[in-house]
Design a protein around this nucleic acid. Sequence first.
DNA 1: AATTATTTGTGCGTATGTATC
DNA 2: AGATACATACGCACAAATAAT
Lengths: 367, 367
Amino acid sequence: MSDSGKTKYFVLMEELKKDIISGEKKPGDRLPSENQLSQAFHISRHTVRKALSILEQEGYIEAEHGRGTFVSRKAGRKKGSGNIAVITTYLSDYIFPRLIQGIDRVLTENGYSIILKNTGNSRLKESRCLEEILEKDVDGLIIEPSKSEILCGHRGLYDKLDFYKIPYVFIQGYYTQMKSKPHIRLDDCMGGYLVTKYLIDLGHEHILGIFKADDSQGRDRHKGFVKALQEGGFSYDPDMVIWYHTEDRSVKPSQVLKIMLEEGAFVDGIVCYNDQIAFEVIKTIEKEGISVPEEISVTGYDNSFIAENGMVKLTTIAHPQERLGAMAAELLLEKINEIPDEESQVERVLKPKLVIRESCKDRRKNR
Amino acid sequence: MSDSGKTKYFVLMEELKKDIISGEKKPGDRLPSENQLSQAFHISRHTVRKALSILEQEGYIEAEHGRGTFVSRKAGRKKGSGNIAVITTYLSDYIFPRLIQGIDRVLTENGYSIILKNTGNSRLKESRCLEEILEKDVDGLIIEPSKSEILCGHRGLYDKLDFYKIPYVFIQGYYTQMKSKPHIRLDDCMGGYLVTKYLIDLGHEHILGIFKADDSQGRDRHKGFVKALQEGGFSYDPDMVIWYHTEDRSVKPSQVLKIMLEEGAFVDGIVCYNDQIAFEVIKTIEKEGISVPEEISVTGYDNSFIAENGMVKLTTIAHPQERLGAMAAELLLEKINEIPDEESQVERVLKPKLVIRESCKDRRKNR
DNA sequence: AATTATTTGTGCGTATGTATC
DNA sequence: AGATACATACGCACAAATAAT
């Protein structure tokens, strides 16, 4: 034991570990064979194996039967639990099942499992979920932020994720203060533009917008709505927009609309935040004895089951739900396997498409 | 290698692990010395050490230089991952979102997270999922068996779950060979009875049944179907039943029905395995120029979204999806917290309810 | 206090099996 | 088919820690 009293296998192990950490041996490189090492270090092959087994256990190297021993591609990193957390606002409703389906498909193909959490769109629950995630060891996180338009009160939790080097990607919304973080979303501005433009092209002149005020999607869809109106030569009238919050969603839009209609407001088209709202809106309108689309056209958003199979087939924006989930999973996998130097693109935007059904009527005089 | 092709160290390791998990060796107990083991198992000390090193690495034992090797004090009561695996056939469609919602609600309330897996109703994937679950440490398992009516080819995996004392409960279906295992299900026999009885009471006399052949639900619903017919004084006619398998589901029922109708078979009511099939059936019937329910009544099963919001509002069986999930989670929690002596009830059956909508017509002459 | 037996830890040499190229 | 490389397995020797005599 010439080397400072340490054991032989320990010396060899440290030597190899040093080479790997320093970068002298790069991920994927082949180590000398066991016999070569045993000769070079003047120790028995058995002792070499002991050193290698420790390194393998710690995840620095990977031995392949009949081929050789290689520096692990994810050298230095923990071996990983194989679990990835997925936090969404809701589980069972609307687009989420398909979204989760897409995430699951990609992750399963790559040997991961998903840990599912949902926040009910509550900031408090989102905090709890994140804290739980930090306690368990997950290899990554896909999260749909709750009420993404409201100031982020728990930025610290995301900082912790960064600190522990747990990669995460946002889906659907994103916190505006964290725009540089990886996220995948629909181009909601374009979506809002498309439906509004469609109504204008069909000759509508009194278009009402109903938007959600507390997430980035609502803000973006409204932005597109305004853009289309102004391009069409209409001046923007704030009275022709109903804003609501998550907590209001089942009552406010319908109630306000009802009052507007009863007060005799003239409306020939309504752009709705999503299909659910559109459905509520149609119910309300028809209760007032007004018919859709003959008197008022209505557009939805998301192309959910309800749009295709409801009483009135909704003209809406196609939401490639499963694709969105799959892309999020793919981006996360890239982040997980990424070497710190290179950085993949952090934002991926899906272009929405208009799906035309039966909820809008052509109001042009001359055709 | 007399022992089933496994390596010697592996055999010894499993043997010792079994003793520790079963409680034969208690935490703090001393294992036989390496030399004793090598003599007892007729293997070299080197091989014994290999086995022990794995157990030490996994945290089952702790070696103390000069004293001996001891069962780890924290071997038995690993703190628990707080994760519970949920394996279903599908994720995004039909009743599953709500079911998972129910499971999630109860488990989240109790501080657990769910790891989601889906099998696509494939036995192979079910095996893979179970193997993965065995590798990760989960505190329990809720599983919807795939094709529960077909002989269980991987019983061994469930035995392993028993061995590692991972509690599990079946939902929806259950393997008939494992009836004594905890499971939660609808009383599908009663459900099948209810819809059929309803049609008979409305004066239907030529009732066709469409059932799935490869799960226990299909078999049970058919059983109720037969019971109602015979109680109503009709003899059972096998030609008035269409059986299909999971792989057939999108083509066979409609095709066979189409042929039957075109050949002039007289049918005034159809009991369908579920709402999806009922939906397909209605499409097929109406393509043939026959109207529902005026000429043929159709019943569904599950009371899914489609039943409430489709073209024809389906008379169906209410499936308390979220409740079912919640009950499964509650039963699992009982199993997890259960002291091995006392055993809670293993089977819980939910009574189904008939939901009457517009897909059946009263055919009685005198009212 | 020293000795001895026991037990784990380190290390060497050899042989055979099996996967890869 | 043969060379190479990792995987399993046996036997031996000695060191270091521990416990009992």
